[in-house]
């Protein structure tokens, strides 16, 4: 078993929580794990990514090699495209369709989504909308985690445990809220795929 994952987004969109939950589940499964994250300047509204590598064999590089990623999980559409060179030939892209526009030359959302749709393996979900419908607008990232579950090769139950572990400090309500968001994303992907 080997999964190389690129998590992509904009500083402040919560990709590190996604990485932490997947990481927890991977370790609980007994897999090797490496997870490189971006700290520093880019976290101020710049592009941020996390390289997440899971394997049943020891992992050397902390970075996913170009052309090796099995999954790009992007919480923002433009950010998905930025990591195209990482994707392997039959990799999946799971992407949130709501753009985060904090630059003056942000491209037409339509042309971004059209580029994504060219790939055979993609899931496009409006995770911002889903999160709002659940009345938990800040759980967009958890909707995206849910949407990626079918492609992670990890046990759903272990991911739930990971969510409880990561958000446990903030109380049961927050955990519940996030689990609901994950379930909604998961359901969407299962229907789309």
């Amino acid at each position: 078993m080997k999964k190389d994952i690129i998590l992509a987004g904009v500083g402040g969109q919560g990709i590190l929580s996604i990485a932490a939950i997947i990481g927890y589940a991977a370790v609980e499964t007994g897999l090797h794990l490496k997870q490189a994250e971006v700290h520093g300047m880019s976290q101020r509204g710049g592009d941020v990514q996390s390289h997440l590598r899971l394997s049943d064999k020891p992992i050397f590089s902390d970075l996913v090699p170009l052309g090796a990623a099995d999954l790009i999980l992007a919480v923002e559409p433009l950010e998905a495209l930025r990591y195209w060179p990482y994707l392997n030939s039959d990799g999946w892209v799971v992407v949130n369709s709501t753009p985060f526009k904090n630059i003056p030359d942000y491209p037409e959302t339509e042309s971004i989504l059209a580029e994504i749709a060219k790939l055979p393996n993609h899931i496009i979900i409006d995770a911002d909308k889903t999160a709002k419908e659940l009345e938990t607008p800040r759980s967009m990232n958890m909707v995206m985690l849910g949407a990626a579950i079918p492609f992670l090769g990890l046990d759903y139950e272990k991911l739930k445990a990971g969510t409880a572990f990561i958000f446990g400090r903030k109380g049961e309500k927050v955990v519940e809220m996030n689990l609901k968001a994950i379930a909604a994303g998961y359901e969407f992907s299962e229907n789309e795929r």
Binding site: P65, L66, L81, R82, I103, Y106, P107, E108
Partner: peptide, 29 residues
């Protein structure tokens, strides 16, 4: 990077896509 070391070793590049042209930079702010 894994790719720059790969090239230094004289191994063939792994197949990969280019970044689509629509992509714009997103500097921190």
């Amino acid at each position: 990077t894994p790719a720059s070391v790969r090239q230094a070793l004289g191994l063939a590049k792994l197949a990969s896509r280019d970044i689509p042209e629509v992509v714009a930079g997103r500097p921190p702010a």
